[in-house]
Amino acid sequence: MEWVDAADPRPTFTMVLDCELLLGELYGIYNVPTVIWVDEDDRIARPPVIAPGDDMFRDFTNIDSSVHHDQLRAWVHTGALPPASDREHVMLPTDDEQLARLERRVGAFLARAGNGEAAELHFARAAELAPMDWTIRRGTLPLRGDDPFGEKFFAFMGEWAAAGHPGYGSADPNAPT
C-alpha cells in the first residue's frame, strides 16, 4: 500500500490486492513483474512474461522494457502478436507446486500471526517443493525477516543460474532470451 500511496500521480487503472497469490495459481505466475495479455474474448493472447515497466534495473535483468512496450502497442492497435519464437511457453502447475503454494500460504498466515518458528517449517517445505518459484523463494524473505535484496536472495540467484536459467526472468526453462 505504501508504494501505491507514494505514487504521484496516483495510478488510474484498477488495482487489486492478492495476499494469497491467487493469480499466481490461476495464471501460472512465478515471478514479478509479470504481464499477461487477455483478448476481447477472455482468451490469453500472451502467456505470462517478465516485463519491467522501465529500465531502472536493466543492468540486473538484461531486459529492455521498450521491446515489450512496442509489442504491446502493436497488439493493442492492430492485434498483431509477436512471433511465436518471441513468446513464452505456457507453464502448467504441477502437484508439487500446488502443495508448495499451500505451504507458503500457511507459512505466511503463521508469520503474520507472529508464529515465526512454525511458519519457517512451512516456508522450508514450500521451497523444497518449488525451488525455482520466485514468489516462494524471494517472496517469503520479508516474512522471514530477511532482506529480499540481501544475501539469501543472491544465494537463490546462484541456484537459479546453476539450474540453467538465464538472468532474471521466466521460470520457463525454454523462454526466449
Binding site: 493469480l23 495459481e25 490461476l26 495464471y27 501460472g28 482468451r43 490469453i44 502448467l92 502443495l99 499451500l102
Partner: peptide, 29 residues
C-alpha cells in the same frame, strides 16, 4: 498451530491454462 489449508488439484488449475482461457477472479481493491 490449528491451521488447515486446502487447495485445488493441479488438474483443475491446468484446465483453463491449457485451453488458453483467462480464468475469472474476484479480489479486493
Amino acid at each position: 498451530a490449528g491451521v488447515v489449508a486446502i487447495g485445488e488439484p493441479s488438474s483443475e488449475r491446468r484446465g483453463p491454462i491449457e485451453a488458453g482461457l483467462a480464468p475469472d477472479f474476484t479480489l479486493p481493491q
